[in-house]
Amino acid sequence: MSEFSNALSVSASALRAQATRLRHVSENISNADTPGYRRKSVAFETVRGPNDTDLVSVGRVRLDQSSLERVFDPSHPLADDSGHYDGSNVDLMIEIADAREAQRSYEANLKMFDQSRQMSAGLMALLRK
């Protein structure tokens, strides 16, 4: 029975990790037009869980250090003497692709969680007979 709980723990940790990733992607999308905003990304790490199970954990949030877009708008309050200011380094195409990938991974882990739960319930039903 512990194999079923291990499978549930692994998929639950992956669900939490993908949910965190989606949260950061949505923050990036919502701040795409914020001057000086740097894109956030998360890395996943493996941590040892109960029963020596490898679980997924979210590592540190990293800020993208690529250069910020220079925007020309002399009427903007942050514009310098040349009429430019620093925009954000968020690329909406990358964010949409990341969101889609995180969504698919979330769905796959949810399916794994449901399959483990169904197999566990099936085993319990067999043991009751």
Rank of each mutant, 00 (worst) to 15 (best):
16 R>G: 05
44 F>P: 05
52 D>H: 08
19 A>P: 00
84 H>R: 01
127 L>R: 12
128 R>V: 08
54 D>P: 10
66 S>V: 03
93 M>F: 14
60 R>F: 11
66 S>L: 09
122 G>T: 09
117 R>V: 01
35 P>D: 07
28 N>D: 04
125 A>R: 14
40 K>N: 12
91 D>V: 12
49 G>K: 07
75 S>D: 14
119 M>Q: 13
38 R>P: 06
91 D>H: 09
96 I>V: 12
118 Q>I: 05
91 D>A: 13
66 S>F: 02
111 K>Q: 14
63 L>W: 05
73 D>M: 03
43 A>N: 14
28 N>K: 05
119 M>R: 14
118 Q>P: 01
129 K>Y: 02
51 N>W: 03
34 T>Q: 04
45 E>K: 10
110 L>Y: 12
23 R>C: 03
107 E>Y: 04
22 L>E: 02
103 Q>G: 11
19 A>K: 06
12 A>M: 05
60 R>W: 01
90 V>C: 10
8 L>T: 03
63 L>P: 00
66 S>Q: 04
60 R>P: 07
78 L>C: 04
58 V>K: 06
10 V>F: 05
129 K>E: 14
71 V>G: 00
53 T>Q: 11
46 T>D: 13
90 V>S: 10
3 E>F: 13
14 A>W: 01
65 Q>M: 15
29 I>T: 02
18 Q>M: 15
27 E>R: 10
